[in-house]
Amino acid sequence: MTVSQAAFKTAILDPAAAVPTGIVNPDGAAASKRFDVYRNNVAVSLSDALEAAFPVVRKLVGDEFFRAMAGVYLRKHPPKTPLMMFYGDAMPQFLGRFEPTKKFGYLPAIARIELAMRHAYHAKDVTPADANALTAVAPDALMSTKLKIAPATQTVTSDFPIHAIYLANTQADAPKPVMQPEAVMITRAGFDPQIHLINAAAASCIEALKKGQSLGQATATADTTLDLGVVLGLLLAQGAVTEIY
């Protein structure tokens, strides 16, 4: 009797499934509790990875609920690579569709922030452009100028006060969130990712710059809520611009 890895895999992920025939204890008898060691190792290690990846989501939904939800998630979305530091990239979509969490509209954006923080932590090291270099650009050339943005730089936009919620769950004495749309930018100057409150227009502009659009293109459709000076000042101060060209 050959035990295929497909049969092993199915039984690992489904606690109700029978242990594949051909797996035995030292006396040649069936070995279901021994097989359970693998079931437990897999579920615990993947749950632990999700807990480490989403501490704020976990705080928001509670430890017990998160553990149960992780059990559902890991069976629906087992890792696709051995890079556990990036496990959980389907969590925002999952939270938006999972029946018990879908009414909490801010959860997917909080999960996106936590993913972005992890990606920023492991992003490529860069040398920031000189923060004064932009002032050297002639005023009539400014709108055709492009900025190369550091790979750690990411934005998340939401109809919910995600910056305030994130802070309230990661910092002591953070103010109570007030219901309003918020956007954030994650940057990494040095080794520790930082989160900054921006607005949706700024997020849209930063995403356009990341795609290689010029300042003119990136601001073409912006309304009056975009303060380009503030956006550029923040990007440069955070070492998030690596080239001005």
């Binding site: 497909a6 890792p79 696709k80």
Partner: peptide, 17 residues
């Protein structure tokens, strides 16, 4: 050991005959 089957990684060292 094995840990990946059908593009799914199990983060454990699974046994083989």
């Amino acid at each position: 050991a094995w840990s990946t089957h059908d593009s799914h990684f199990f983060n454990d060292l699974l046994p083989l005959p």
